[in-house]
């Protein structure tokens, strides 16, 4: 069985399972509302699609870790992992497939979000008779991409390590909304070496290499390694 085939099955599961599908519908609906709201409430002379993408990027930074967590924890939580290991006893492959699926789902969602945001921005522009402009795309797009992909990987890593959806999602939110901001107050400039924001900053070209490496080891590499070991050696009850 190829890892590619397994990855496609994992992607399919995200869209056909009630919980993750509901989550994606909520994210898409919020994205649409945001796009319309930014169009109506923004500059009264024009509609800026880049501004819509910037706000969507913020939402994706918070939402994508949840997708990563769900991809890595759902099978363990519902004891379906046994059936997967029966179909693919080489467990590392299913782990890699989940990782690839996390990235594929993110790419699909980003494409969908960009499409929806563009259509709605055009629609709002026509409705309000304002011109559509794209100023600031060079900043908005990298931020959206980096926030989404780093977010989904961080969620996948924590989900893999904890194998518990509630615990991993809680930790993701804590990390994004509380731990990262608090680390900014750590004296002697230590904070950036531990913040996930350092990973995103480096990817968008705004951050330094060393904090990217240390934060990447802490929030991505270490939990992924723990998750891989647990995935390979875990006994299915």
């Amino acid at each position: 069985m190829t890892t590619g085939r397994l990855s496609l099955v994992e992607v399919r599961k995200v869209f056909t399972t009630l919980g993750s599908r509901t989550f994606l519908i909520v994210v898409a609906s919020l994205g649409a509302v945001i796009a319309v709201a930014v169009g109506f409430l923004g500059d009264d002379q024009q509609v800026n699609a880049a501004a819509v993408l910037t706000v969507l990027g913020l939402m994706f930074t918070i939402a994508m870790p949840v997708v990563g967590v769900l991809i890595f924890t759902s099978d363990w939580q519902h004891r379906e992992i046994g059936s997967i290991f029966l179909a693919q006893p080489r467990r590392s492959r299913s782990f890699v497939a989940k990782l690839i699926a996390s990235l594929l789902v993110t790419a699909l969602l980003l494409a969908a979000a960009a499409g929806i945001a563009s259509v709605l921005s055009v629609g709002v522009g026509v409705l309000l008779q304002r011109p559509l402009i794209w100023t600031g795309l060079d900043e908005a797009v990298p931020q959206l991409l980096a926030g989404s992909f780093v977010g989904v990987l961080a969620g996948a890593a924590l989900g893999a390590a904890l194998q518990n959806a509630i615990g991993a999602i809680s930790l993701c939110f804590l990390q994004t909304l509380l731990i990262d901001p608090l680390l900014g107050f750590v004296p002697a400039g230590v904070g950036p070496y531990l913040m996930t924001g350092s990973i995103t900053s480096f990817v968008t070209g705004a951050g330094a290499l060393v904090p990217f490496v240390t934060a990447g080891l802490l929030w991505l590499a270490a939990p992924l390694a723990i998750g891989l070991v647990r995935h390979r050696l875990g006994e299915v009850s």
């Binding site: 099955v9 009630l18 179909a87 006893p89």
Partner: peptide
Amino acid sequence: PTSVVGCLLDASAHHPGRSVSETVVLHARY
């Protein structure tokens, strides 16, 4: 392996929020 051994070890160990057909189709895809 599944063409040599078929297993029914825990009939309830599938995602409760997935349809019956999708549950089996996913395993077929695997």
